[in-house]
Simulated assay, not measured.
Amino acid sequence: MTETFPLSHPISAGDVPPDGETVTFSADETERKALADTFDLDEIRSLDVSFLIKPWRGDGLSVAGTVDAVVVQPCVVTLAPVRQTIRETVDLHFLPEARVREDVSEVSVDPTGEDPPDVFDGDSLDLGAIAAEHVALGIDPYPRAPGARFDPREAGVGDKEPSPFAVLEKLKRGGDQ
């Protein structure tokens, strides 16, 4: 069973013209809400995609372009809403899974070389899943509202226990009392 992602925009590899084609789309309100829930965000205000799709190595596809989004999430200090603009550049190559399985006799990875291609199942590649993945990569994991700062004394944790480093420094200096 194949599960579909909240943002789905499949394209058939066989339908891509030899010179390539530009594909643009925007997530609608339902898709943005579902993605916001998936990524544990307050809101995704916009999500716009522009990809140039070209044939690559015969039956593969090259996907290049941008994913732009505006997300809102809670500040890690105050929980106030923080707005973030995301712009991710995409430059990926894909091969059909069946072809990759045929070419797996020996795997060598060059850490300074080009990334190996990703795979897609059957004849269809989901551009929506690629876009959603790049939005997730662009989300700030620790958003902070302007001017928000954490004061341990205000939180009631500053005067109770010394830091582990202060304890180690005291031991190092020979004062264990």
Rank of each mutant, 00 (worst) to 15 (best):
V71G: 11
A27Y: 10
P116I: 01
R87E: 12
D37K: 14
D110I: 02
L41N: 11
P74C: 11
E97D: 11
G20Q: 09
S26A: 15
E29N: 15
T30A: 15
T30G: 12
I86E: 12
G20T: 10
E114I: 02
P18D: 04
L92Y: 06
G113W: 08
P55Q: 05
D40Q: 15
R99S: 10
D115G: 03
D68K: 14
A27R: 10
Q84I: 08
R87C: 13
V82F: 10
P18S: 03
E21N: 02
D123V: 00
R87Y: 02
Q84E: 13
V23Q: 03
T85I: 09
S50R: 12
C75I: 04
F51H: 05
R101S: 15
V71L: 01
P17K: 06
V107R: 11
T78N: 05
I86A: 07
D37Q: 15
T112F: 05
D28W: 14
G58I: 03
C75Y: 00
R57M: 09
R87P: 03
D115Y: 05
D40W: 09
E43L: 12
F120L: 01
C75P: 00
S124A: 04
P17W: 05
P81T: 12
G60K: 01
D68F: 12
I86S: 04
L95R: 14
F51A: 06
E21Y: 04
W56T: 03
L125N: 00
T89D: 11
D68Q: 14
D48A: 02
T24V: 13
T38P: 01
Q84L: 09
L47I: 06
V104D: 15
T30K: 15
D40I: 10
V70K: 14
S50T: 14
D110E: 10
R87I: 10
F39M: 13
E106L: 14
P81F: 10
D118T: 11
R57I: 01
V67W: 08
L92I: 08
T112I: 03
P55D: 05
V16C: 00
T38M: 10
P74D: 09
I44E: 07
S62N: 13
T38D: 07
V104W: 14
D110V: 04
V49T: 00
V109N: 07
F120V: 05
G122I: 02
D115M: 05
V23E: 01
E21P: 00
D91S: 06
L79H: 03
Q73N: 06
S124M: 09
P117Y: 12
G60E: 04
F120C: 00
K33V: 08
G60D: 03
L47D: 02
D115I: 08
D15I: 01
L92R: 15
V107M: 15
F51T: 04
R99W: 06
G122H: 02
